[in-house]
């Protein structure tokens, strides 16, 4: 807003008012009172996020379409894709659990990848980006709600639980899922909210389409 002093910032965790210091690229600025990370520099953040979000969107397809695990007993077999977990629970009458698995393991990661792709694409290619704010809000508010890494640990525990009972076969879906988790984790590391909001500010000043 007009006139808010540019040399002041506040800590988002303890609300301490601090003077802004200019940080070196490798220097994190930390709240002197509660030690929260205030701001830092990520080099080539947008380019990295663009590459990672494209990789993530591509990996999302095999991770969801190919079987994660297959089980063989007495000539019968059963395969599992992520969606199947939600469907089976839904059919078994556990609608709430089914919905949560659907959200945490499929919907949230997908929305986050799409939002990330949109943000990095519009900022990198300087498109008009009418939905930049919404994309940023979606991504930031959904942080922590995508739980693919926990799902993967669940797969590993299921393998150990079932390995004595039946023949298990690991599918292409599991490898894709592991790669997808790496990509999502890296994108979380390179996502630097302060820097991106600042870039959106600049982007908006250059673009007459915004607002």
């Amino acid at each position: 807003m007009q006139g808010t002093p540019k040399h002041l910032i506040a800590c988002h965790e303890c609300d301490l008012l601090i003077e802004r210091v200019v940080n070196q690229p490798d220097q994190d600025v930390v709240c002197p009172r509660c030690h929260a990370l205030l701001y830092y520099t990520t080099l080539n953040s947008i380019e990295r996020l663009l590459a990672l979000s494209i990789a993530g969107l591509i990996l999302f397809i095999p991770a969801n379409l190919f079987p994660i695990l297959s089980l063989h007993v007495f000539g019968q077999s059963q395969s599992e894709i992520i969606l199947q977990s939600a469907l089976s629970l839904y059919e078994g009458g556990l609608e709430v659990v089914a919905l949560l698995i659907l959200l945490f393991a499929i919907v949230v990661p997908l929305i986050q990848l799409i939002a990330l792709f949109y943000i990095s694409f519009t900022l990198h290619y300087r498109w008009e980006g009418r939905l930049l704010r919404q994309a940023m809000h979606s991504y930031q508010h959904l942080r922590g709600w995508g739980m693919l890494e926990i799902f993967l640990l669940g797969v590993l525990i299921s393998i150990i639980k079932l390995k004595d009972i039946a023949d298990l076969e690991v599918g292409l879906g599991l490898y894709s899922l592991a790669a997808l988790i790496i990509v999502i984790t890296l994108s979380g590391i390179f996502f630097n909210p302060h820097q991106i909001w600042h870039q959106i500010d600049l982007h908006r000043k250059q673009s007459r389409f915004y607002d």
Binding site: Q78, S85, L89, A105, V155
Partner: peptide, 14 residues
Amino acid sequence: MLDIFVIGILVALV
């Protein structure tokens, strides 16, 4: 949420 995912996977698989 780990246990919930394990249940989901086991129910789908077995």
